[in-house]
């Protein structure tokens, strides 16, 4: 297994968009969450986070986006990095998102959820794009 958060972020985003455009909101919503998670983890790796031999982040950061968002705000520190935290909104847009929602019924997630999480994922991918421009992430 080779972890590639940058690549995975883009793939989840593209697939989420496909589903969203076809009104498949619950699964679009699910993938927006993973797109955001992978984007932030790609940046954290670029900023120095070491992955374990299993390709996973260390314990406190091995979490999904509903917890990772706030962690990222705390993680970024110092002159070169603080700007990335500042690109994310302070209130976590994924606070109501959960990785287990893939087991939920089809009517529990609607277009408003997908729209909010689409916006959140866009912010996280914005941080990744910025970190690439700056050279932290290849």
């Amino acid at each position: 297994m080779s972890t590639d958060f940058k690549d995975a972020a883009r793939r989840h985003w593209d697939d989420a968009e496909l589903l969203d455009n076809n009104r498949r909101w619950p699964n679009a919503d699910h993938l927006y969450g993973f797109a955001a998670e992978c984007a932030l983890k790609a940046v954290m790796v670029g900023l120095g986070m070491q992955l374990g031999p299993d390709g996973k982040p260390p314990k406190p950061h091995a979490v999904h986006i509903h917890q990772l968002w706030d962690q990222f705000l705390t993680f970024a520190n110092g002159q070169g990095q603080a700007g990335y935290a500042a690109m994310l909104q302070q209130s976590n847009p994924f606070s109501a998102w959960h990785e287990n929602q893939r087991y939920w019924g089809s009517t529990t997630i609607g277009p408003a959820d997908a729209q909010a999480h689409c916006a959140g994922a866009r912010q996280a991918l914005g941080v990744l794009s910025q970190a690439r421009q700056d050279g932290w992430v290849k």
């Binding site: 690109m87 866009r122 991918l125 914005g126 941080v127 990744l128 794009s129 910025q130 690439r132 421009q133 290849k138």
Partner: peptide
């Protein structure tokens, strides 16, 4: 230099605002 496959970014694929640059 970056590796050839990473050497060029495209503004139309960027999620960050390119205008300040």
């Amino acid at each position: 230099a970056y590796a050839a496959e990473d050497a060029i970014l495209y503004a139309d694929e960027s999620f960050a605002n390119i205008e300040p640059l």
